[in-house]
C-alpha cells in the first residue's frame, strides 16, 4: 500500500508537471487526425494522473501528501485545458490554483495539524455507504452522458486567444466580472476578519514589543 501510494504520488507529480508543458503545443483541431494519437496519449496520461492523484487523496490520511496529490491533479487538469486549446485558462489554473490556493491550503494544514489524535476518516460503514453512493452517482452520470446526443459543432482550427477571452470578459460578461472582483474583495475582508485575534492586532505588536 505504501509503495503503491508512493508511485502514484511520484508519477502524478512528474507527469502532471511534464504533461502541462507537453500539452501546451499549439492545439490541433479535433477533426483532423495527423496528431490525434499524440493527443490521445496526452489525454490519457493526464487523465490517469488526475484520477490517480484524486484516488490518492481519497485513501491517504496525510494532509501534506494530499496537498502534493492535489497539486498533481490540478496540474493534470491544467494540462487538459491546454489540450483543449484553452491556454489562458490552463495558465490561470496553474498560477492561481497551484501557485496561490495551494499555498493557502498548506498554510491551513500547517496551522491546524495536531499530534495525530484526529481520526481522518469516518467510520467504516459510513465509508462503505459513501462508496456506494459515489459509484451509483458515477453510473448515473455515465448513463446520462452516454445516452445524450451531444450536438457537437466542428471546432475551428484556431485556439481561443487571450484577446478573445479578454474581450468577452469586458463586453458580454462585464457584470459577472465586476461581481467576481467584488466577491474577491469581500473574501479578502472576510478572511482577514475571520482570522483576526481578539484584543491584539497580530504579529506586528509582538515585533514592536521587542
Amino acid at each position: 500500500m505504501r509503495h503503491a501510494l508512493r508511485w502514484i504520488v511520484m508519477a502524478g507529480v512528474w507527469s502532471a508537471l511534464a504533461g502541462t508543458a507537453w500539452g501546451a503545443e499549439a492545439p490541433v483541431p479535433p477533426a483532423e487526425s495527423s496528431s490525434t494519437i499524440l493527443e490521445a496519449i496526452a489525454f490519457y496520461a493526464m487523465a490517469a494522473v488526475a484520477l490517480l492523484s484524486g484516488l490518492a487523496i481519497l485513501v491517504s490520511r496525510n494532509l501534506v501528501r494530499n496537498v502534493v496529490c492535489l497539486l498533481a491533479a490540478l496540474g493534470a487538469v491544467a494540462g487538459l485545458y491546454f489540450l483543449l486549446a484553452a491556454n489562458l485558462l490552463g495558465a490561470i489554473q496553474l498560477i492561481v490554483y497551484a501557485g496561490g490556493t495551494l499555498v493557502l491550503i498548506t498554510f491551513g494544514v500547517m496551522l491546524t495539524s495536531r499530534p495525530g489524535s484526529d481520526r481522518q476518516l469516518v467510520r467504516g460503514w459510513e465509508r462503505i455507504a459513501g462508496g456506494v453512493v459515489c459509484v451509483t452517482l458515477f453510473i448515473g452520470l455515465c448513463m446520462v452522458l452516454l445516452c445524450t446526443e451531444w450536438a457537437t459543432v466542428a471546432a475551428s482550427a484556431e485556439p481561443t486567444t487571450v484577446a478573445a477571452v479578454g474581450r468577452a470578459l469586458l463586453t458580454d460578461y462585464l457584470v459577472p466580472f465586476e461581481l467576481a472582483s467584488v466577491l474577491l474583495l469581500v473574501m479578502l475582508i472576510g478572511a482577514a476578519y475571520l482570522v483576526r485575534r481578539d484584543g491584539e492586532s497580530g504579529a506586528e505588536d509582538d515585533a514592536d514589543r521587542c
Binding site: 488526475a50 484520477l51 484524486g54 484516488l55 487523496i57 481519497l58 494532509l63 491533479a73 487538469v77 491550503i105 491551513g108 494544514v109 491546524t112 484526529d118 481520526r119 481522518q120 476518516l121 469516518v122 459510513e126 465509508r127 455507504a129 459513501g130 462508496g131 453512493v133 459515489c134 459509484v135 452517482l137 458515477f138 452520470l141 455515465c142 452522458l145
Partner: peptide
C-alpha cells in the same frame, strides 16, 4: 464525472475539514 465522484467520495469519507 470520475473526478466529480472522487471528489464527492472525499467529502463523504473525510472527517477532517481540510
Amino acid at each position: 464525472a470520475m473526478l466529480f465522484c472522487i471528489g464527492v467520495a472525499v467529502i463523504v469519507t473525510k472527517r477532517n475539514a481540510i
